[in-house]
């Protein structure tokens, strides 16, 4: 089940990234392509098979997991700025790009690196399960490491959440409000990931569902914005072209 969810999310995300190639060529909002490409890579690194392959190339010391964390940070940072700009959320933009946001990003990044350095990172495995299972000390380090990795995305999502909820209640076009709702659900899911340590091991599959729900909500939320734009563009093109003879 989890595998299906993972691969589906990967395909959806890769398709969304590919659909941005034309706009990438036109040099319009290129960062969205990079965000989706990074997200695709992040999903790839969170699936066991590809993770083992890539980590093997990097020396088999779970360096790929560290890479994954910073890929997520980069994607969420640029996506957060785009969304805050788009929805006119000055407060969210300040929280992400201002001093507070930079300080938090720096702090969490350093914490990640330090925790990673203190771990005995041998034993390549997705989610560093092998390291987690080693001993008490490594288990605690992996817990803190994971918490740090989830903290920054949660911070960005919390910063954006009020603006998303405002947009949902606004009088914007329906598609954009649905899009804001999806982004809000994704944001809430990412925030919920802060509580992963409280989830009993028997319900471990919940962590996967929450993570991939978040990604799917973000991707579909963004895709809806494009759908709304294309539809509106077609409408105005039609209405301006109608007087002219069609082929």
């Amino acid at each position: 089940m989890i595998e299906i969810l993972q691969w589906t999310t990967l395909i959806v995300c890769a398709a969304a990234a590919l659909s941005r190639v034309p706009t990438l060529v036109r040099k319009k909002n290129r960062s969205l392509f990079y965000v989706l490409a990074l997200m695709t890579l992040a999903i790839l690194l969170s699936i066991n098979g590809p993770y083992l392959l890539i980590d093997g190339l990097l020396g088999g010391t779970n360096l790929a997991n560290l890479l994954l964390r910073f890929i997520i940070f980069g994607a969420i940072y640029f996506l957060g700025i785009r969304i805050a700009n788009g929805f006119g959320d000055q407060r969210g933009l300040r929280l992400i790009r201002g001093h507070a946001g930079s300080a938090i990003l720096a702090l969490i990044s350093v914490a990640l690196l330090v925790l990673f350095a203190f771990m005995d990172t041998g034993g390549s495995s997705a989610g560093m399960m092998a390291v987690y299972a080693k001993d008490e000390r490594n288990r605690a380090l992996v817990e803190y490491y994971g918490a740090a990795g989830r903290a920054y995305p949660a911070y960005v999502c919390l910063a954006l959440l009020p603006a998303m909820l405002r947009a949902v209640r606004s009088t914007l076009p329906a598609l954009l409000r649905i899009s804001a709702l999806l982004l809000a659900i994704g944001g809430i899911a990412v925030t919920l990931s802060l509580f992963f340590p409280a989830i009993p091991p028997a319900l471990g599959y919940l962590t996967f569902i929450i993570n991939y729900t978040a990604i799917l909500c973000f991707v579909f939320g963004l895709a809806l914005v494009w759908v709304a734009k294309v539809r509106a563009g077609r409408k105005t093109r039609d209405s301006t072209r109608r007087p002219v003879a069609h082929r």
């Binding site: 969304i83 788009g86 006119g88 914007l172 494009w226």
Partner: peptide, 18 residues
């Protein structure tokens, strides 16, 4: 006024996320 505001907001969303 609300329509104009919504229109501006929509344009801005498309400009940044479109």
């Amino acid at each position: 006024r609300r329509q104009e505001h919504d229109h501006q907001q929509t344009e801005k969303i498309w400009e940044n996320l479109g």
